[in-house]
Design a binder for these strands. Sequence first.
DNA 1: CGGATTCTTTACAACGTTGTATACAACGAT
DNA 2: ATCGTTGTATACAACGTTGTAAAGAATCCG
Lengths: 354, 354
Amino acid sequence: MGEADDRGEPSRRRVGLKEVAREAGVSVKTVSNVVNGYVHVTPETRSRVERAIRELNYRPNLSARTLRQGRTGIIALAVPELDIPYFAELAKLIVTAAEARSWTVLIDQTEGRREREQLVTEGIRAHLIDGLIFSPLAMSAAELRDRTDDTPLVLLGERIHHGPADHVVVDNIAAAMDATRHLIELGRRRIAAIGAQDDAAGETGRLRLAGYRRALAAAGLPFDESLVISVDAYHRADGARAMAHLLGSGDPPDAVFCFNDLLALGALRTLLDRGVDVPGTVALAGFDDIEDGRYSTPTLTTITPDKEMIAQHALDLLAERMARRPARPAREVTVGHTLTRRESTLGRRRAQRD
Amino acid sequence: MGEADDRGEPSRRRVGLKEVAREAGVSVKTVSNVVNGYVHVTPETRSRVERAIRELNYRPNLSARTLRQGRTGIIALAVPELDIPYFAELAKLIVTAAEARSWTVLIDQTEGRREREQLVTEGIRAHLIDGLIFSPLAMSAAELRDRTDDTPLVLLGERIHHGPADHVVVDNIAAAMDATRHLIELGRRRIAAIGAQDDAAGETGRLRLAGYRRALAAAGLPFDESLVISVDAYHRADGARAMAHLLGSGDPPDAVFCFNDLLALGALRTLLDRGVDVPGTVALAGFDDIEDGRYSTPTLTTITPDKEMIAQHALDLLAERMARRPARPAREVTVGHTLTRRESTLGRRRAQRD
DNA sequence: CGGATTCTTTACAACGTTGTATACAACGAT
DNA sequence: ATCGTTGTATACAACGTTGTAAAGAATCCG
């Protein structure tokens, strides 16, 4: 009864439409039709084919399909690191939103290294992905503009005016102003900022710093350079170190605006570790509204960007770009943000009342 | 000076080896040889081809390559949710380790839903991935055994003896015992457990509960069912709720072992929010050692599984399975763990001394 | 009953790539 | 001069799929 020359597993030969067709006694195309739910197939044929499929344990070959159809249904999401909660949360939302379009998401980690970012934008995955959503860290606007790959691209979180690609942003300046103003309204006067970046091609740090300065200016508060702390990265450890530095200096601040929540949580750790009352002595605000900040003690006041909308718009822009291929001018979409007031600025009592 | 009948972009035709070959005046195979760095190509030919490649902006088509070669270089990682820090950290490690083998990782989120887990293990991605690393939540051992797809599979974190697939586990029972014993050695006597699961096909909760009970028994402590709290999921919110429940009951515990760090962080939030001293009044231990727990106040005592090793072994097993295809018996690898003592059990002073 | 329509199935080609086999040229050793 | 070796380039086939066209069978309409 057939199949005898291969020792080992019984039916472990490659099986494609051809094999199924032979087994069912029909043409390859008919099998294909069954697989794809084409309507004009007699019930008998269909069931015969289906039996053969089950018998041979057939699975369609997606690569072949892709080759034939010219599209893969896969998009890539390139982020610095997956274990940064903000990106993890965003990745989740994007994956979920992509499913609604029957797209699969492949995630690339750039580690914020320029060379890796370049590989990604230059299309190492060419023809394997239909589009790319990219959150740049090291690459500058100019570099981005020069890319030769023509995979549809959507940028996240950078404001590259007249840039080479669509992008989705939050209004970093306005948001940073909101956070800073909130601290000011609480009566704080020596407000530090953690998260400036000396090198960084990226705009994020620069824009949030600008917002911070503008809010100070609007309130008539002096800008004190010694209250601005630069960091290498936006991780908890950097925030903790920066806060230690601030506390170590002669005249510590009475509030700190951290350019993201991880920095803030690191700073919080340092403060509490040294017995500093938060927000009593030092009030603290972050940016991103990651889940951790909702469960810290005190809970973290932060800027809440509309992450669902970021995911949504990124996919919308990508879809558009994929459809009508050639030059339509790059578009920028700004998603909303809100200031979420929690205990790290309001204190326990007021936070619970609101 | 061709290309005139397509309005719009200049060279936006599909370009494959064929087009490059025509442009360079060589055969398709020669272009392929150049692209793949084949040595026996004259410098002139090579540079002519390279110029054509640049000129036409050629990118190799990975789908075609895949189809031809029968392997994609892509493996899938299926986890419940990407924004659970443990999985995010693991995903990062796996992606990094996979790179060393020139594999790309595609991440699937199952949301812990059986139907989605089944799709993944039944090979929706057949022939698109060379292997699958899967962290099951809803599917039982039996269901897993029945799968008909033959994509190489490695399971994470479940102990399915004589299972249908290789798996990498931590010794959940031993680890849970370690954590519980630590609490006992600190003099705690009413030790609660948060994280049992009523439904769950998964073993994790059951095993950690078993370890907890065994440690109690070994110390001659009574097992009090009212101190075991079941949860729906392993998120912060569940931990917070469970802790509230424990505090609400008449006789609260003096220590809590949470079956993962998120539960512990949620519990911690509830404790601190109600002004309970940790670890003074209630000591707290978790499981996973996610980064959040290193920056909470107090820092979180936890079981530290060797995540690098989990990633490493998962890939090793997968590689083996991919190489010698047919039935070699399923293998189980147990990776090490340690108990990381921090402030949530030792208190500030002792934690800093150690 | 004849012609038009619909149903069902099929053959063929093409998507872009690379392994194999082969051809010819150039070269070195005898 | 001859043979074998190496270098360089090529043609062909195949990977598995599906859109197109087309053919024969069944059905409908007047």
